[in-house]
Nucleic acid binder design. Structure first.
Lengths: 286, 286
DNA sequence: TCACTTAGCTGACTTTAGTCAGGCATCCGG
DNA sequence: CCGGATGCCTGACTAAAGTCAGCTAAGTGA
C-alpha cells in the first residue's frame, strides 16, 4: 500500500511535539529545504518561522546553514535534518502509515481496495480543481516551457515527427491581446497546460497549441482550456472558432467532437494537419 | 447538491470567530445538544467547554438551561441556539457550502459528479471502518434492540412472516461465554448489527442471529461479523461451524457461499429454514 | 442515611500560535 | 556605488487553546 491515506493532520499523531513544529519538521523532510520555500508552503510569518527553526535547532533536530550552491544568493538559508531529526521524521511517517493501517484494518480486502481507489480519485479531482487557467504572455518562461513540451509531445506522436519549419508559424504578438490570447494552466504555480486563440479580423477565431501535461491528463483539463478559449473569443464578438489537428491525436479529436465541433473542409495548408474542425459559439451574455 | 463536501475545517471559514467557538456553535446545531454530548463529540475539557459556552452565552448566541425532560437528571444541561445563534449557524453552513462550490466550480459537470460520488464512497467506507464489533451480553438493551430489529426484518421477508414460537429458541445463557458469544456492532456506540455463535460440546459450532442495519448495509459488515464469529469458535478449538437460513434471504445465502460455506443436509428441524450450511475452520494460530 | 460518584462550573495557570516593528546583511538596477 | 528591495533574524506583544485543582448540587448504592 503505497498510497498515503491520511495526511499529517491531527495533533494526536505528532508525538507530543506541537503541531506547528511537527508540520515544519515534516516539510523540511530528509532532503532539506530552503527557508523561503518552507515559509511559502506552510504560509507562516517570517519571524514565526525563524523562531520555530531556532526551537528545532535547539532540540538538535535541524541545522540551518547557508545554501551550498556556489554563486547563489548568500542570504538564503537551507534547513537540513540532523540524524535525530531524520529519526523523528521517520517516526512521523510511521505514525501516519499506522493511522492509515488503523483505518484499513477493519475493512475486507475488497473494501480496502475500494477505499484506496476512491481516495485516489478524490485526490486527483481535487488536484484538477486546484488548477488555475489564466492569460499569460507567450514570452513568459512558463509559457515557453509548455510550448517546448507541446512540440516534444507532438513530435513523438506524429508519423514523421514534427518540424516547426514546415508548420504554419504562430507569432507571439498574435497571442497577445487584443490580437489573441495565450492561456496558461498552473498547479501550485507550476505549468501543467496551455492553449491559445488568434482573433482574425474577418475570419473565425483560430485555436492553437492546446496542450496538457501527463500529470493532469484525464481530468478534463483540455476541455476546460478549450472552453476558456472559446469564451474569450465569444466575449470579443466572435461567432465561431476553428482549428486543425493531426490524425494521430485521437483523444483530442474525440474531445473536439464531444465539445460540439464538426469537421469541415481544410481552411489552411498546414503541413501536419489531417482534420479541420469548426464550432459555432453562443453569443456572450455580457 | 446536497452532499456536504468540506467539513467545517479551517479558520478561514469561521467568520472572525475563534475556531473552537465556531466548532462548538456548529455542533450545538439548530436542535440544541446536551453539554455532556458536546464534550464527548468535541473531545474538550469540562472546564474549557463550560467557559466556551459562557462566551457564546455572553454574545447572545446560546442559552444553556436544564433539560426539558421530566424525571431526567436535573444536573444535565442543554445548550440551545438563540435566534442570533441560529443565524450565525446558518452563516457557517452557507460558508461551508460556498467552500464546496468553490471546489466544484472549476470542474465540468461530469467530473463534478465523479468527485461527489467518490467522496460519498470514501465517507461510506470510512464509516464502515469506524464500526466496532465486540462481545456484549445478549441482555444489554442495545443487543435487545438489535434482536428486535432482526425479528422485524425477517418477519417482513419470510413468506409467511416470522413467529418466534414456531422457531427453535435461543436462550441468553447459550450466548454467554463459555457457552457461546453474542457480538454487537456499534457505530459511535449506536448498535448497527449483531451476530451470535453457540459452542456445542460435541457438535459443530452454530451461528445465529446475524443482522446488519440498513444504514450500513453493503459495506461488508455481515461478512465481518461472520468472520469474527468464526474466529471466536476457532480460537476455542472448534473445527467447523454451521448455520441455517431462509430461502428468501438471498444476499445472506450469497455471502455464505462466497465466505466458503457449502450447503449440507438439514441438521435440525428449524421451521423457517430451507438451507443449511457448513464451513471447515482453519485451526487458530494461538 | 451516609459515603461516594457524576455533571457542570469557576479561578488560576501554561502552552501554542501568531503578529508587528525593527535590524542587519546581501543583492540588484541605474 | 548608492538607494531601495529582499531574506532572515530578534524582541515584544497578544489571542486562542487547553490544563488543573477544587467547588457545588444532584444522583446512587448499600
Amino acid at each position: 500500500m503505497t498510497q498515503r491515506v491520511g495526511a499529517l493532520d491531527d495533533e494526536y499523531m505528532t508525538s507530543g511535539r506541537p503541531l506547528a513544529q511537527a508540520r515544519l519538521l515534516w516539510e523540511i523532510g530528509p532532503d532539506g529545504a530552503e527557508v523561503a520555500a518552507l515559509r511559502a508552503r506552510l504560509g507562516l510569518d517570517s519571524g514565526y518561522l525563524s523562531r520555530l527553526l531556532r526551537t528545532l535547532e535547539g532540540d538538535g533536530l535541524v541545522t540551518v546553514g547557508p545554501a551550498e550552491q556556489v554563486g547563489g544568493d548568500a542570504r538564503v538559508r537551507v534547513a537540513t535534518l540532523t540524524g535525530a531529526g531524520r529519526a523523528e521524521w521517520a517516526a512521523l511517517d510511521e505514525r501516519s502509515d499506522e493511522f492509515a493501517r488503523s483505518i484499513l484494518a477493519p475493512l475486507s480486502g475488497q473494501r480496502r481496495d475500494q477505499l484506496v481507489a476512491a481516495m485516489a480519485q478524490v485526490e486527483r479531482l481535487l488536484i484538477a480543481s486546484m488548477v488555475v487557467v489564466e492569460p499569460c504572455p507567450p514570452s513568459d518562461p512558463r509559457a515557453r516551457a509548455c510550448l517546448r513540451a507541446y512540440a516534444r509531445d507532438i513530435a513523438r506522436r506524429f508519423d514523421d515527427g514534427f518540424d516547426p519549419a514546415l508548420s504554419n508559424p504562430v507569432h507571439d504578438e498574435e497571442l497577445i491581446p487584443p490580437a489573441g490570447v495565450f492561456l496558461l494552466a498552473t498547479l501550485n504555480s507550476k505549468p501543467v497546460g496551455c492553449g491559445a486563440v488568434k482573433l482574425h479580423p474577418d475570419a473565425p477565431a483560430e485555436i492553437k497549441r492546446v496542450w496538457v501535461a501527463d500529470t493532469v491528463r484525464g481530468l478534463g483539463m483540455g476541455r476546460r482550456i478549450l472552453s476558456d478559449l472559446e469564451r474569450y473569443a465569444a466575449e470579443r464578438g466572435r461567432t465561431s472558432v476553428r482549428l486543425d489537428t493531426n490524425r494521430n491525436l485521437t483523444e483530442a479529436i474525440a474531445m473536439y467532437h464531444s465539445a460540439g465541433y464538426r469537421e469541415i473542409e481544410p481552411y489552411n495548408t498546414e503541413h501536419f494537419a489531417h482534420h479541420w474542425f469548426e464550432k459555432q459559439l453562443d453569443p456572450s451574455p455580457s
